[in-house]
């Protein structure tokens, strides 16, 4: 084998190219409908993250990291958690109690609409962002990045680079 192509065979790549959008959209659907049907932030976030993991597996690291960089994923990870906390603290600010469902208390809506259940869909979105970003980070860190001593200093390098050095 000379000059191995990053990623898997043509069949996998083609199928991934067709499917990735649908998987992503399905994840978003699960996040948005979490308050009406089984699903929610965690399950949807895992599905969204699996899109990126599938991209990494079939096209190699560069392609997936081009879509969602490592720094970006880390920022989104923090952002999701902060958004979730912000919603919880807004309950304190508006209604006086942490995690109060202030939208439902102040502007009640009927059941089984897309925007029912007050803050729960918003929480689901925040959790979805957090879970998707952090799962992708976990996968990238476990699969691609290694710690190595370079002249006494610790550095994060990728496996491909290390393979070349050997």
């Amino acid at each position: 084998m000379n000059e191995r192509q990053p990623g898997m065979s043509l069949v996998v790549q083609t199928v991934t190219r067709w499917l990735k959008g649908f998987i992503f959209l399905y994840g978003v659907y699960v996040i948005l409908y979490g308050h009406l049907s089984p699903g929610g932030g965690f399950a949807g976030g895992v599905i969204v993250a699996s899109t990126f993991i599938l991209l990494t597996l079939s096209f190699g690291r560069e392609r997936a990291l081009g879509k969602l960089g490592k720094l970006m994923a880390s920022e989104l990870d923090s952002f999701g958690a902060l958004l979730f906390l912000l919603i919880a603290v807004l309950g304190t600010a508006i209604g006086g109690t942490f995690f109060l469902n202030f939208i439902e208390k102040n502007w009640p809506t009927g059941n089984f609409h897309l925007f029912s259940a007050g803050i729960i869909p918003l929480c689901n979105i925040a959790i979805g962002i957090k879970v998707a970003a952090s799962l992708f980070m976990i996968f990238i860190i476990l699969a691609v990045i290694r710690v190595q001593e370079v002249r006494g200093k610790r550095k994060l390098i990728t496996t491909e680079k290390r393979r070349k050095e050997r």
């Binding site: 880390s74 990870d77 923090s78 902060l82 906390l85 919880a88 603290v89 942490f98």
Partner: peptide, 12 residues
């Protein structure tokens, strides 16, 4: 809430 928020805010 405060340490949780700062724990995610500091890396950002």
């Amino acid at each position: 809430a405060l340490p949780l928020a700062m724990a995610f805010f500091i890396p950002m």
